[in-house]
Lab assay of single mutants.
Amino acid sequence: QVALSRTQVCGILREELFQGDAFHQSDTHIFIIMGASGDLAKKKIYPTIWWLFRDGLLPENTFIVGYARSRLTVADIRKQSEPFFKATPEEKLKLEDFFARNSYVAGQYDDAASYQRLNSHMNALHLGSQANRLFYLALPPTVYEAVTKNIHESCMSQIGWNRIIVEKPFGRDLQSSDRLSNHISSLFREDQIYRIDHYLGKEMVQNLMVLRFANRIFGPIWNRDNIACVILTFKEPFGTEGRGGYFDEFGIIRDVMQNHLLQMLCLVAMEKPASTNSDDVRDEKVKVLKCISEVQANNVVLGQYVGNPDGEGEATKGYLDDPTVPRGSTTATFAAVVLYVENERWDGVPFILRCGKALNERKAEVRLQFHDVAGDIFHQQCKRNELVIRVQPNEAVYTKMMTKKPGMFFNPEESELDLTYGNRYKNVKLPDAYERLILDVFCGSQMHFVRSDELREAWRIFTPLLHQIELEKPKPIPYIYGSRGPTEADELMKRVGFQYEGTYKWVNPHKL
């Protein structure tokens, strides 16, 4: 086992960053958080920038500027975001240094004079007029057009580079997404736009490419001749908990499936790229999406959770019991969808996408189930092999396979070949997804960000279904809070070829 401390991990990262040409360590950078008073800024962006600063992973002359409508001070920003920093008493001095680099400007999102004030403020910072500028839009999409237009007109660096990070949702359907994309691309070049999907920053999602293309053993079996089906799962054990009003506007397909799960599907299904260059990788992902037809209604199961009468606390409440959810809402909190990649490698292999709230566990994984062994000599005792990439929690890679049961006879039983990170790298604290992705933006690497043509294809696949749901308002199937979801989803999976045995229990190697 390799035991690495946080300091050692960050030392390795620093070495990698400083050796590259793309990370300008000594240049002045300004990180501007648009929507600095909001939840995302408070819980994710400010803490992430602090962790990067604490670990010495930001360029040395980096300033952080918050911008929002609320009249706040840096002290206010500190008060609301610091509880999420997880700072230790030993880091007190470092924390003071961090907040000394912070400033805040209040202004409207659609007022040109406010942006001119913001620009004057940035120019007044040390070497601010020639600094590289990175704008993070932690804002609702309704203000994107006004904000990007004003940034472009008043706040661009004339000497350094300018980059803009856009948070999902990128529209509600193909038409609104196209409108937003066309607007942003009329102001910024594609190499300046970073559409963030934080799932692409997760260690195991990034590991998929290495697993596939750096190991000879997987190449020959990664196709329709050997793989019976692919299941991509995202499960949350909690409901909307008072935030249903926002969720109800989008629903589970827009929230998770059309982005996170579809991105994971691309990494499983794509061909080997010409290189690890950002556009070479994204070219292959677009090719996969172009091979997927629009979702067919007979390959869809929609569910909505109801309270568990035997549960406790939140578990007793259904989705419609959330006071922020519109009365009688038919918005799905669970969806199972089957897609097919219609190309030579994957023809006929079902890709089953499942996601839901208020389920029995927290889990995100990719599961490849292989065909049955031909010419069975073990009297149907063999179960199908599976390769599982567990994204969260407890990152893991393992192969479910058959071995001989101890004893006199040739009785096979299920076991696993474990390729888990935790076994080799004991207690290594890896940077989280937002840390990686923000560092990628500083480096100018777009590999783990969504390109406009990729986004367009993703919406093309799901828009007809979303429009049909909005028009017909089908009643989702009720499922109990804390269950596996509607049984109809299991029946759909069985119908397209997935075999669920229920006889195997994964042993978490992190707890051995």
Rank of each mutant, 00 (worst) to 15 (best):
P273L: 01
G328V: 11
R384D: 02
Q381P: 15
V268H: 00
P431D: 13
D322F: 04
G482C: 04
D372K: 09
M402H: 14
Q468G: 08
G318Q: 02
V325R: 05
G497F: 14
G407C: 14
E386V: 03
Q369A: 11
K475V: 13
G313L: 14
K494L: 07
K287N: 12
T403P: 04
L262T: 09
V286R: 11
T399P: 03
E435F: 04
D432P: 14
R460F: 00
D432Q: 11
H448G: 15
E457L: 05
P431K: 05
A433T: 15
A396D: 13
R327W: 10
V373R: 02
A332E: 07
Q380S: 06
Y340P: 01
T316H: 04
Q468A: 14
A274K: 07
H379G: 12
Q369W: 05
T403Q: 14
D453V: 02
V300W: 13
G407V: 10
Q304D: 01
C266S: 15
I469V: 14
Y319G: 00
E342Y: 05
D440M: 05
N277C: 06
E454D: 03
V325D: 04
G328H: 11
W459E: 14
M257I: 15
K426L: 14
E454M: 10
N299L: 06
L261F: 05
Q369D: 00
L359S: 06
K473D: 13
L339Q: 01
I352L: 04
S445L: 13
E414N: 15
T324P: 07
G313C: 11
A364N: 13
G328S: 12
L339D: 02
G422Q: 05
A274R: 10
D490P: 03
C291V: 08
L465T: 09
F351S: 00
N298G: 13
M264P: 03
L368M: 11
D432N: 13
D321I: 04
I469W: 08
V496L: 13
F378G: 01
E416C: 13
L302G: 00
G444D: 06
M264R: 02
N411S: 07
L267Q: 09
F351Y: 03
C355W: 04
C443V: 13
L265C: 08
V300I: 07
L289N: 02
G303R: 01
L471P: 04
E501C: 05
V295F: 04
L417A: 13
A364L: 09
V281L: 10
L320N: 03
E344A: 12
N427I: 10
L417E: 07
G482V: 01
V295S: 05
G348M: 02
V349P: 01
A332K: 01
Q392P: 05
S452K: 03
L387Q: 00
E414C: 14
Q392D: 14
E386T: 07
P412E: 04
E470P: 04
E294Y: 08
H371M: 09
V366I: 13
V295R: 03
A489F: 12
C355G: 11
M493V: 10
E470L: 06
I477P: 05
N308V: 03
I469Y: 14
K475G: 10
E294Q: 11
K473V: 06
T330C: 05
P431L: 14
T331W: 00
K404I: 15
I352M: 06
G307T: 05
L430M: 12
T333M: 00
R362I: 12
K511P: 13
V507P: 14
T399Y: 08
M447N: 03
M270W: 00
N308D: 12
D310P: 02
F351R: 02
Y504H: 15
F334P: 01
T503G: 11
N423M: 06
L339M: 13
V397F: 13
S293R: 10
Y340V: 04
N385C: 08
G502S: 13
V301P: 02
R424Q: 15
Y305V: 02
D321H: 05
P412W: 14
A315I: 06
N385H: 13
F351Q: 01
V496A: 10
L437P: 12
R367S: 10
P464G: 06
N298R: 10
I469H: 11
E413Q: 11
P509R: 05
T330W: 06
E342I: 05
L465N: 00
V373K: 02
L439F: 05
E414V: 08
R362H: 09
R327I: 10
D279M: 08
K404C: 15
K494R: 13
C443I: 08
P309R: 11
P474W: 11
Y319T: 00
V325H: 07
S445Y: 12
S415F: 11
G444A: 12
A297Q: 05
C291T: 10
Y340L: 04
D440H: 04
Q369I: 12
F351T: 01
P431R: 04
T316C: 08
